[in-house]
């Protein structure tokens, strides 16, 4: 069914990417050997950096929400202010600490995972603080900023075929882990319960407290689905009347990094669709416009997935007579400077 055509491997424009991807193959294997580990790898205490993750501000959008009915407030959880610049610091910390606690993450292991960028940056940041090795698979056409940041933290990059998107990166990691199971700690963010539990344990309680227990609606885009699943599950335990809206890109081909168009992608096993009271879609163009407005009108320099969340939440907030609508600012806009997001006025 996959039928991945060898013609693409031989295809001229993709050759440089694939050459680099193949040339990187052995690096994580080599770097995962016991002998390459510094002696203090097992004794480093829990880095203080981990305490800086979470407890982000919840900010009302006064300008963008200025024409909402009295009694309706649109709030954003400023996850781009995490030390790694994205919401992914939370699940990365949770998955790593879960691995350390249960013993599946040993000192000689190289942490390996597929990531479109933000989770990888969070892994790389935390692993650097823990003095551990990291190897990350991501499509070659990930933004140059992301790759530069990952390399700065010392991560090995396994660059995969852009034609296969993040699912191709996931398949590559699975191959490596199956070939060398003893060399890697593979959190597998798409299937790891610690991913959604990070949001169940931290993000949701913060939102509940910061809204003085008044939140009525929660909106989040689906990527690994960890944010939506974890936050929605906890919020519904607090108050079953809270409406949770799951958002996806409107088309299979889109420009919303980190989000998945589920009809044409692998549905992550951690996704619990029963938590979604409603489904919404957002176009890349709408998201980009809102992303530029967030910077210009609210002083919030965030990425396109945050713009998609806010555009979707605003659209829903307009239909209400009263309520507190909360959504997530997923990552910092400085991660998209090399694209035409900030220069395009369309």
């Amino acid at each position: 069914m996959m039928g991945f055509n060898i013609a693409i491997v031989l295809h001229t424009p993709l050759r440089p990417w694939l050459r680099e991807a193949f040339s990187m193959d052995n690096l994580p294997v080599m770097s995962g050997s016991v002998s390459s580990q510094p002696a203090d790898a097992t004794v480093r205490a829990r880095p203080e950096l981990l305490n800086a993750i979470g407890n982000t501000p919840l900010i009302p959008l006064r300008q963008i929400g200025h024409d909402l009915p009295d009694g309706v407030t649109l709030w954003v959880k400023a996850e781009h202010l995490n030390p790694g610049g994205s919401v992914k610091d939370r699940p990365a910390r949770h998955m790593i600490e879960d691995g350390l606690r249960t013993g599946t993450y040993q000192p000689h292991h190289t942490l390996i995972d597929a990531t479109s960028g933000n989770t990888g940056i969070a892994y790389a940041m935390i692993a650097a603080a823990l003095n551990r090795d990291v190897a990350l698979a991501l499509p070659e056409n990930a933004s140059t900023e992301r790759k530069a940041v990952l390399r700065a933290y010392g991560a090995e990059l396994i660059l995969t075929d852009p034609m296969e998107g993040t699912d191709g990166a996931q398949a590559r990691v699975q191959e490596l882990v199956e070939a060398h199971p003893d060399r890697y700690f593979y959190p597998d963010q798409y299937s790891n319960d610690a991913n959604w539990q990070a949001h169940y344990d931290t993000t949701a309680p913060e939102i509940w407290t910061q809204t003085n227990e008044r939140i009525t609606h929660f909106v989040a885009g689906l990527g690994t689905t960890g944010t939506f699943t974890g936050v929605a599950r906890r919020l519904k335990e607090y108050d079953g009347a809270i409406t949770c809206i799951a958002m996806q890109p409107d088309t299979a081909l889109h420009g919303l990094e980190g989000l998945k168009h589920l009809p044409t992608a692998h549905t992550p096993s951690i996704y619990d669709s029963s938590l979604a009271d409603a489904q919404a879609t957002c176009s890349t163009e709408t998201a980009h416009t809102m992303t530029r407005r967030l910077a210009a009108e609210e002083g919030l320099l965030v990425g396109p997935s945050a713009g998609a969340n806010v555009a979707t939440a605003l659209r829903h907030a307009r239909t209400l007579h009263a309520g507190h609508v909360v959504t997530i600012l997923c990552d910092t806009g400085t991660r998209y400077l090399s694209g035409d997001l900030w220069s395009n006025n369309a």
């Binding site: 993040t166 420009g255 980190g258």
Partner: peptide, 15 residues
């Protein structure tokens, strides 16, 4: 000529 439609970073493959 070889013409490729290359996705942005996000996306996936149908099963």
């Amino acid at each position: 000529a070889e013409v490729s439609i290359v996705p942005s970073i996000a996306g996936g493959r149908s099963r």
